[in-house]
Structure formats: structure tokens, C-alpha cells
Design a protein around this nucleic acid. Structure first.
Lengths: 334, 334
DNA sequence: TATAGTAATGTAAACGTTTACAGGAGTGCC
DNA sequence: GGCACTCCTGTAAACGTTTACATTACTATA
């Protein structure tokens, strides 16, 4: 493999000049530039951007840490990040935590060793040591799907509380009073916790007593949604509406409910959260909260670059959500 | 930021020794090792694996090129390669081509400049120059979702022809004779082409004339599935069954058919390809061909490492597929 | 033609590891 | 005490760029 030296020799110039035709061609005479370009062709020169990274301490790589690429909502954000990184000529290394905090730690460490220029993190614990350490060391990172509206971290997210509130309010406006919730485990998902909070507050605001038996915390997955709904339906006084804290849970719940012989949405209303693409394709089409996943990823990447270039005081951005009413929610039976 | 030099100085040893405690601690005396470890703690030493990559010409990074992370089937494969890469202490840089060949070219070039140790590629054109060049230069790469059973490339894939055949055969066994197909554009998806081929051959084998009007080539997306099915249903002699060349198209088709007032599967049978997770959660549950996406990714990564370590003659692996009959296919009406 | 100014190019050190090779220290044996 | 051996550690070059600074080559002006 030929290096800048070989090219320089062949073209009869110095390595500095070769480097210049690569990085700032405008500062080398046309004639020289052509000589160099020709030489590069001849010895089939291949640029080594890792060596560049080493020399400049800039890898042009960022790390993206998400719970799991399997959830379409994170896949969508990933695209947002990638697309923006692309315009900045930066590549992204992807890591899944599978909602495990120690995995998050490992990933952060590994990626930093790799000298990524910055990190975009969908954290499992916004109050943990990982972020604190990162911030203390003034390492550039931004939180994605953040629940934090203020404070020392750069972050972009949505108002999960409001989202939960909106869904619940929708249920109530349809006459429901027994409203269950299938939530992601609070211990691994702050988001889920905030959504629950909104749900709970909305109940109280409408004079509906909060019943803790109507809450199930579980893993984010189709099968868990399917199972959880059955548990709720087995209650002595089962819910007539169920708020699932993501669309996958909701889709699972729909299946579970049907397996119990219920007609949807006549016998049971179900709503989700995320508005993943298929949400509008299932039957009945899923009522859900739309969160702008792609935009969030894109904005997260933008903020990260901003942070890397100018580590001013932290910016937090909260993106809007929208209640999308479709066919999976209906008036309370009877 | 402290380097190996600082640590060495502090511990009163040479950099070589420090390097050794990092990479092969067993070859340094316990006492020395502890001295060094202590020094590392004290000066808060952070390993720089980019520098290592530079020195060893091994980045411990591989590139993964897929059409789009939005398709759950690719997301699943991505997990497979990540999980295996992980056991090899390797990170993966992800790139989407969005089914564009020039994007594929750009990605390959960029990733090679980045000195990734190898590439896993879901190509848009297995006969194009990109792969040929790569192979000529003896660059380690393996094809994912490959349609190639033999030849000079390392590859893992499935038998798309057989998949297409199986689905069609299933339709025919249910009495269907007018069987349409909504396929990904042949120009960007060899896989789709092979599936069509199987479909076509199966028709012929059963004495059913091939009708080119029953084929639609389009982009892989929910909306395209939705639109395409309507086109097919508008035919003078519309199909009673439709084979969609992936599940997203099929899910879209289900919606489109319903918008036309059809009852599924009574009025129209629909089958997909991939068996993505939600396929069994929609109503009616989707009949489809299961392809082992996760395993494919994992195996692809395994093969890549094998190829990197021992560039022997190419290996091609074809994974099994399975027809999963669910509720979206039924006997022909009447 | 000399000169000042600018534009283009060259020199060489730096980036943080690894590793081939050399050298030294310890051990067991005669 | 000398020797051979093993085990541990050190020396220094190498990896392929970038870049501050120095130098040289042009150009315009008088």
C-alpha cells in the first residue's frame, strides 16, 4: 500500500504538499496539484483517514448508543443521526445496550477508547455515574430521548409526561374510567416513568382514583404486551382501556386481547406511544402519540456537533408530540 | 490526557512494559504489573485504541452496509453482526445505501479509508464493479442477503428462488390460479428478482400461464404495497392471491386491499417474505417466508473474521427458509 | 534591476501505540 | 564460580498523516 511519501517522491514534492492537495487544494499551484494527482493515480494511492485521525486527534466518527436497533423508533432515530453525520463527513458506530446499564458503561468506555469525537446516548439512567463522569471530564455528548428539560447536559427529547397525559385524557373523553397501563420497567426507562406520571396525574385531575393494580411494568416487547394485557383482563374489575407505553407493547396487547375473545376497539380500547410506521397499518389502526424520531436523531447529531465546536452552556430541546387518534380507541362499552 | 509515556515514567518502567501489561499481562512480573496498574490509576490513563490501530494496521472495526436500517429484517441482521463483532472486541460502523448503488460505492470507499478491517455488504448489484474491485484487491468482505451460491465471493444468503416457489406453490394448493406479485425493483434487488423467478417457475410447473400484467415492481415500502395492490385489483381479471416480496409490502397491501372493501383473507390472499416480528401480530396474521435474519448477520460476521484470518477459497452459505402459513392466505373464493 | 510583498513549497517534529531485537536478572546445575 | 537457560524488561524504530515554521519562488512596482 502506498503512502503519502511514495506519492511525494514520485511527484517530486514534499509530503506537506501532497497533504495539501488532499486537504486544501486551493493553496497549491495548479501545475503542482496536477503532478501530484497524477502520481496518486499511478501508485494507486489510498488515503488513510485513520492515520489522519491519529495525527489530528479527530476521528470523524461519533458513537450512537441506543437500547436496541430492533425497535423501529430507535432505527428511525439512527437514520436521523446518520443522515446528519453524513453531511459532516462523519461515520457513526452503533451500540445496543439492550437496556442494561453496565452495557451502557462498557459501550461508552469502548467508544471513547476508539476516540470517537462525541457520543449520542439514549441512556438507561439519566442520573447515573456514566453521564456525570462524562460531563465532569467535559466530554462531548448529547442525550437522546431525554426526559431532562434543564440541567448540565446537552439533550433532546420529548415531554413524556404530556404524552401520557394526552393519551389518558383521550381515554377519559371517551368515557373510560378503568384505564390500565402497560409500561416499560421504570428502573430501565425513565421515559416510561414520565409517561406513567402523566397518566396518573390525568386520572387524578379527573377525579379518578389511581389504582396501582392497573399498572404493569415489563420489558418492551410484543410478547410482553401480549401477556400483560391478559393479566390486566384477569382482574376482578378489568380495565376498559389500556395505555401501552410503546407501540410494540400495544401491538402485542392487541393480539393478547383478541386471544381473550375481545373485539377491538368495541370491548377494549388500546393506545400506544411512538407512532412507528406500521401503527397505521394494523387493524384496528393504532391510536398513539407521535414522537418525531427521525428529527430527534437529526437534531441530536446537530447539537452534538454544535457542542463539539463550541462547548458553551448546555442546550436542551424538547420536541413536540401529537396524539394521533385512529381506530383502536372507542367509547367505553355499554 | 496522559499517554503510555507518562505511565511508564511514573511507574519507572519502559513504554514497552506498559504496553505489555495492557495487551499481554501474563508476560510481565506481578510486581511490575501492579506498579504499572497503580501508575495508570494515578495519572488517569485512558487507552487510545485509535493509536493502536494506527500502529498495528488493525482498527478492530468493521463496516456494515445495508439498504436501510428501517426495514426490521436488516435491523435484525445488524444485531446479529453486532453481537458477533462484540465477542471479537470489534465495533461496527453502519451505513445505509437506501438501495442506491453510488451510495454503496461511496460507503465502501469511505469505510476503507477509515481502515475498517473488513466489510459486510448487502449489495444492490452483485455483478457490479464495486465487488469486483474489492475482490481484485483482495480486500476482505462478505456478502449478506446474497443470491450467490457459488463463485469468487464470500457470502451468506438464502435461496430466494425456492422461497418464491414455496409461496406460489402454497397459493396454488389453495386453488388460486390468478396470482399476482408485488416485487421490489429488479434493478435494485436481485433478491426480489430471484423470488419472482421462483414464483414464475412454479406457475409454469403447474400449467398456469405467466401473465406479466400481474407483476408490479416497486420500492420496498408500506405505501408502495398499499398502492400496488390497488393497481392489481383494478385489472380486468384481478388476482385472487398476491405474493409480496417482503413483509412491509405485504402489510401495505393488506391495508390497500381493505380500503378497496375486500375481506381478508376471504376475498384476497396475501403472503409476504421475511417473517419480521410483527408479521404474526397483525390481523390476519401474515403468511410469509421466514428467513433467519439474525443468524445470517451473525454468520456473516463469523465468515468475515474467518476470511480475515485465513483468506482461503471463498465460502458461500445458504441458510434455510421456511414457509410460515398463518391466516392471510385462504382457499380461493367461490 | 532591485525590492518588497505574497504565494507556494519544504523541513521536520509530533501524534500514542506496538514490537523486533537486545540485554539483564534470576535460577538450577555441575 | 561458571554456564546455560528462561524469564522479564528496555531500546528504538515504525506506522501515515498534519502542521508550525522556515524557506524559496514568483510578481509587481518603482
Amino acid at each position: 500500500m502506498s503512502t503519502i511519501f511514495d506519492v511525494a517522491k514520485l511527484a517530486g514534492v514534499s509530503t506537506a504538499t501532497v497533504s495539501r492537495v488532499i486537504n486544501s487544494p486551493e493553496m497549491v499551484r495548479t501545475q503542482t496539484r496536477e503532478k501530484v494527482t497524477r502520481a496518486m493515480k499511478i501508485c494507486n494511492y489510498k488515503y488513510n483517514s485513520l492515520a489522519r485521525g491519529f495525527a489530528t486527534k479527530q476521528s470523524n466518527t461519533i458513537g450512537l448508543i441506543i437500547p436496541t436497533i430492533n425497535n423501529p423508533v430507535f432505527a428511525e432515530s439512527t437514520r436521523g443521526v446518520q443522515d446528519y453525520a453524513d453531511v459532516r463527513k462523519t461515520q457513526v458506530i452503533l451500540g445496543n445496550t439492550y437496556y442494561q446499564y453496565d452495557q451502557e458503561k462498557t459501550l461508552v468506555d469502548t467508544l471513547r477508547e476508539k476516540q470517537v469525537d462525541g457520543l449520542i446516548i439514549t441512556t438507561t439512567n439519566p442520573r447515573g455515574n456514566i453521564l456525570k463522569t462524562l460531563a465532569d471530564e467535559n466530554y462531548p455528548f448529547v442525550l437522546l430521548y431525554s426526559t431532562i428539560k434543564t440541567g448540565p447536559f446537552w439533550a433532546v427529547g420529548i415531554d413524556n409526561y404530556r404524552g401520557g397525559y394526552k393519551v389518558t385524557d383521550h381515554f377519559i373523553s371517551l368515557g373510560h374510567r378503568r384505564i390500565g397501563m402497560v409500561a416499560g420497567n421504570f428502573s430501565i426507562s425513565d421515559r416510561s416513568f414520565h409517561r406513567w406520571h402523566g397518566y396518573r396525574q390525568c386520572l387524578l385531575d379527573h377525579g379518578i382514583a389511581y389504582d396501582k393494580n392497573l399498572l404493569i411494568q415489563t420489558d418492551y416487547s410484543l410478547t410482553e404486551g401480549q401477556g400483560s394485557v391478559k393479566t390486566l383482563l384477569s382482574l376482578a374489575d378489568p380495565p376498559t382501556a389500556i395505555f401501552c407505553s410503546n407501540d410494540y407493547l400495544a401491538l402485542g396487547a392487541m393480539k393478547g386481547a383478541r386471544e381473550r375473545g375481545l373485539k377491538l376497539p368495541k370491548d377494549l380500547s388500546i393506545a400506544g406511544f411512538d407512532d412507528i410506521e406500521i401503527a397505521s397499518y394494523v387493524i384496528p389502526a393504532l391510536t398513539t402519540i407521535r414522537q418525531p424520531a427521525y428529527e430527534m436523531g437529526k437534531l441530536g447529531a446537530e447539537l452534538l456537533f454544535q457542542r463539539m465546536e463550541n462547548p458553551a452552556r448546555p442546550i436542551q430541546r424538547m420536541l413536540g408530540t401529537e396524539l394521533i387518534v385512529r381506530d383502536s380507541t372507542a367509547r367505553v362499552p355499554g
